[in-house]
């Protein structure tokens, strides 16, 4: 019985966790095992938690505007720890213009406000390794 494990985390200094909690709940209801890690985390904390729980997906939520720095930092640290196969997705208030850059940096998909949670579930199911 192999359940998909998803780490939901908020890197950086923003405390707005409503969205992350809604997504965590939706993922649980879709049958995923969600490790919720809370707010104000460093990329190092997130990558280490992902390693210890051996998750297949890391879902990052960020509303502070620092996504261009923090999302790629998380991707790099995951790789550095040997977690090359982990699917990294992002969400939050992220301008469309930034999305191509984030994808180039290894973020598989970015979900902006208004996205139905079912889209996130479908994306994970289609892309998880």
């Amino acid at each position: 019985m192999a359940n998909v494990k998803v780490l939901v985390a908020k890197p950086g200094l923003d405390g707005h966790d409503r969205g992350a909690k809604v997504v965590a709940r939706a993922l649980r209801d879709a049958g995923f095992e969600v490790i919720y890690t809370g707010i104000r985390l460093t990329p190092e904390q997130i990558a280490e938690a992902a390693l210890q729980d051996d998750v297949q997906v890391v879902a990052l939520s960020l509303l502070s505007g620092a996504h261009n720095t923090l999302f790629p930092a998380c991707v790099e640290l995951l790789k550095a720890k040997g977690l090359e196969d982990v699917l990294v997705i992002g969400g939050g208030v992220i301008p469309d213009a930034d999305i191509p850059g984030l994808k180039a940096a290894g973020v598989a998909e970015v979900f902006t406000p208004g996205t139905p949670t079912s889209n996130i579930v479908d994306f994970i199911n289609a892309n998880v390794k």
């Binding site: 359940n3 965590a24 709940r25 993922l27 649980r28 209801d29 879709a30 049958g31 995923f32 095992e33 969600v34 490790i35 919720y36 890690t37 809370g38 985390l41 190092e44 904390q45 280490e48 938690a49 210890q52 729980d53």
Partner: peptide, 29 residues
């Protein structure tokens, strides 16, 4: 685990995030 969806929210780690910087500790949910 939720008996309805088979999913789970594992929230213990939220209290333990500042243990992540310590190589002498390993937490598994």
């Amino acid at each position: 685990t939720s008996p309805y969806s088979g999913g789970a929210i594992l929230g213990d780690r939220i209290r333990m995030m500042d243990l992540m910087a310590d190589e002498g500790i390993f937490v598994r949910s």
